[in-house]
């Protein structure tokens, strides 16, 4: 079986963005999903609570980027730019939230790992798109 045939580079972006979206609804710390944390934080301080939605926003934007390249392979640079914007949201989330929640990281659950793996997959998807030679 030709595995390479099925391991299309577009799958990386698709998997990565789906993982990022899923991570929003999966448990992060103490069986609480990011959505739960967002709702709790909103009641305390609305100012920074929206940051907890950034992985979801990132996942949606990267999904759009992936769909664009699936729709038309010629739109490689467009897809990369959209993925850049998507990853930008994730970077802001990681930079601002992770240091605050550092104490909880050792007990992080599946949601955290999904988001990290998702963002890495999107990163490699971008590299893969750029390194793939045009026919």
């Amino acid at each position: 079986m030709n595995i390479k045939k099925y391991l299309d580079f577009r799958l990386l972006g698709l998997t990565g963005s789906i993982l990022l979206i899923l991570s929003q609804f999966l448990s992060w710390y103490s069986n609480q999903s990011l959505l739960d944390i967002y709702i709790i934080k909103t009641s305390v301080s609305i100012v920074d609570s929206f940051l907890y939605l950034f992985p979801l926003i990132c996942g949606i934007i990267c999904l759009v980027g992936t769909i664009i390249i699936m729709y038309n392979l010629e739109y490689r640079i467009n897809s990369v730019i959209i993925n850049f914007i998507g990853l930008g949201f994730f970077l802001v989330f990681v930079i601002k939230i992770i240091p605050e929640d550092l104490l909880y990281l050792p007990s992080a659950n599946i949601g955290f790992y999904f988001s990290i793996i998702g963002s890495i997959l999107v990163f490699f998807d971008i590299l893969n798109i750029l390194l793939t030679k045009e026919k």
Partner: peptide, 22 residues
């Protein structure tokens, strides 16, 4: 494409360093 790779690597490489420092 190569220019985008450089931008991407430097930008996210920088991000990794910021994260590690944080």
């Amino acid at each position: 494409e190569n220019a985008l790779i450089i931008s991407l690597l430097v930008h996210y490489g920088g991000f990794s360093i910021v994260l590690l420092l944080a």
